[in-house]
């Protein structure tokens, strides 16, 4: 899967989880950029990303993402 394809899929997941069709994520996107992305929604998001890509993050990984770019880097190592 190419990086573009990963971002494409991720955008769908983000739009679904945060109920906002206008969301467009990039490597620099952080929780501060999306209004509802708090610690609660973070877990919902991670669970949805895992379901979409058929992967499983470790607790260290899911607590360590600083931005979407880091999440994508980890997704690449897991798929």
């Amino acid at each position: 899967m190419t990086t573009e394809e990963i971002y494409e899929k991720l955008n769908e997941v983000f739009r679904d989880v945060f109920d906002d069709e206008d969301i467009e994520v990039n490597a620099e996107t952080t929780a501060d950029d999306i209004e509802d992305w708090d610690s609660l929604e973070h877990i919902n998001l991670v669970n949805a990303v895992e379901g979409e890509f058929g992967i499983k993050f470790t607790m260290a990984q899911l607590q360590g993402f600083k931005n979407v770019g880091e999440m994508v880097d980890i997704i690449k190592t897991l798929i």
Partner: peptide, 19 residues
């Protein structure tokens, strides 16, 4: 509590399947 109880709880099979 968030790191060691709430997150692991929401990562259990039960809570992942519930929604």
């Amino acid at each position: 509590l968030k790191n060691y109880l709430f997150y692991p709880l929401l990562r259990t099979e039960f809570f992942m399947k519930l929604p």
